[in-house]
Simulated assay, not measured.
Amino acid sequence: MSDTITTPPIHMPLTTADRCDRCGAAARVRAVLSTGGELLFCRHHFNEHEARLIDMGATVVTNEDELV
């Protein structure tokens, strides 16, 4: 029997080049989906879609100096 080691995914910090997938504003939040995809959101669109992202089991990642 082999043991499988699972490591958490590594996410690059958001940069000024990262843009919201909804409106093109500066991205402040990365939502990593359980299927492996990811979505980038500005704060406004993250707030709008937060409940659905939680229902989908998404992992929310922000830069360390940002609060969600």
Rank of each mutant, 00 (worst) to 15 (best):
L40S: 06
C23S: 04
T15I: 05
T7S: 05
N47F: 03
G24K: 05
A26T: 12
E48S: 06
L39Y: 15
V68A: 10
A26V: 10
L14H: 01
G37R: 11
V61W: 05
D65L: 11
H11R: 07
P9I: 06
I5S: 08
E66I: 13
H49R: 10
L39D: 14
R22H: 10
L40W: 01
C20A: 10
E66L: 11
A58R: 02
D55Q: 14
A25Y: 01
D21C: 11
C42Y: 04
L53D: 08
S34Q: 15
T6W: 08
P9N: 01
A25C: 07
D21W: 02
L39V: 09
H11L: 10
N63M: 08
R19M: 09
I10W: 06
G36P: 05
V61M: 05
R28E: 15
A31R: 01
F41R: 02
L33H: 13
A31D: 03
T35D: 15
V60T: 12
S2G: 08
L40Q: 06
M56T: 10
A17E: 15
H44K: 12
S34W: 08
V29F: 01
T62H: 02
T4L: 15
M1D: 12
M12G: 07
G37D: 15
T7K: 09
F41Q: 00
L14M: 03
T6H: 11
R19T: 11
M56W: 11
I5E: 12
R22Q: 12
H11Y: 15
C23Y: 00
A26F: 03
V68N: 08
M56N: 12
E50I: 00
L14R: 01
P8R: 09
C20K: 08
S2N: 11
T15W: 01
P9S: 01
R43F: 02
T6F: 13
R52W: 04
L67F: 09
F46C: 04
F41C: 04
D3W: 03
C20I: 07
E50G: 00
T15M: 04
V32Q: 07
L40Y: 10
H49S: 13
R19S: 12
S2H: 10
M1C: 10
G57P: 04
A17F: 09
P13E: 07
F46P: 00
R52K: 11
E64H: 13
D55N: 13
A25V: 00
